[in-house]
Nucleic acid binder design. Structure first.
Length: 293
DNA sequence: ATAGGCGCCTGCTGGC
DNA sequence: TGCCAGCAGGCGCCTA
């Protein structure tokens, strides 16, 4: 579910509630998440204050006193909210952290349990944790040269490249499709098919789409809510994602759907050209890419 | 190196 | 009405 804009929204919502606040009690349910929660972490967290709440890619990073980090991933259906302690406990709530004021709780809820919560100690292991997974740079930190280099060197399709967290961290299925539409690029093009302009355009599109989605507090299709329980609004601005058969907002051609990199992929068959730069260089059209619909 | 397939989970929708 | 297949915002593992 949650991609960079959703996780960023959660982090921004949680930050004012958690920063400087101590955990007074931790409760963990029996059913395990992607990684099991260890009982010893309860004791290690109680009495400790939150130093900061940050985001890295799709990860929520909560720095705690006592040289620890609470690392949370929302998977597909994770919700991480501060709620009044008396709020009814919803089904699929797996972790509850009582906050020092006694009136509020931080709760982790996850229907499909693809999410995870881990306590890392010491804090310095955070860097190696991300390094081992090869987590790439934040999209807003990526410069032109890096993007050109990584794109030109790969025969993988653009959709797969954008979903690969090692290249750029935080893009998921929705924003990959939306960015490719914004850049007018066919998702099945290979990285090395693109000229410099196209690569630069894609980098720009990723940033613009993510930034706008953050402004709209992310996208709520079914389960996603921010850290305050509020839904996002960007789903109202989708141009292709989930709009199979509806008219393209630019040219009215029906939006098409195909499976790429194992994921449902939505695009406009007319304005997302299979050749790189249709208006400028029809010559560059690669024959292998203009067959099949 | 990379694509494809599966598994991990639950819940909802649409077709018959 | 009921059943079943297919689908869903993620990711890691395996195989070819």
């Amino acid at each position: 579910m949650p991609e960079l804009p959703e996780v960023e929204t959660v982090v921004r919502d949680l930050r004012p509630h958690l920063t400087g606040c101590a955990f007074t009690r931790v409760w963990a349910g029996r059913r395990k998440l992607r990684k099991p929660w260890k009982k010893i972490w309860n004791r290690q967290l109680v009495g400790q204050r939150v130093l900061s709440v940050e985001r890295r890619g799709k990860w929520i990073v909560i720095h705690i006193e006592n040289d620890a980090v609470l690392l949370v991933h929302l998977g597909m259906t994770g919700q991480f909210c501060v709620l009044p302690a008396e709020a009814p406990m919803q089904a699929h709530t797996h972790l509850v952290f009582d906050l020092a004021d006694g009136r509020q709780q931080l709760r982790f809820r996850d229907i499909r349990r693809f999410g995870s919560a881990t306590l890392l100690r010491p804090r310095s292991s955070l860097a190696s944790y991300f390094a081992e997974s090869g987590l790439g740079p934040e999209p807003f930190d990526v410069d032109r040269d890096y993007f050109r280099k990584r794109l030109s060197g790969t025969a993988r399709c653009l959709k797969a490249v954008l979903l690969d967290q090692r290249l750029v961290a935080g893009v998921g299925n929705i924003y990959a499709d939306e960015a490719l539409f914004a850049a007018r690029l066919y998702p099945g093009l290979r990285g090395l098919d693109l000229d410099r302009n196209a690569v630069d355009g894609l980098r720009r599109a990723v940033r613009v789409v993510l930034k706008r989605a953050i402004e709209r507090r992310g996208s709520s299709i079914r389960d996603y809510v921010g850290g305050s329980g509020l839904r996002g609004e960007y789903q109202n601005e989708f141009r292709v994602y989930g709009r199979t058969g509806e008219p393209c907002p630019r040219c009215r051609t029906p939006i098409a759907r195909m499976v790429l990199a194992g994921r449902s992929t939505h695009y406009c068959p007319r304005c997302q050209a299979k050749n790189v730069n249709p208006r400028v260089s029809a010559r560059r059209r690669a024959p292998a890419l203009i067959t099949e619909a």
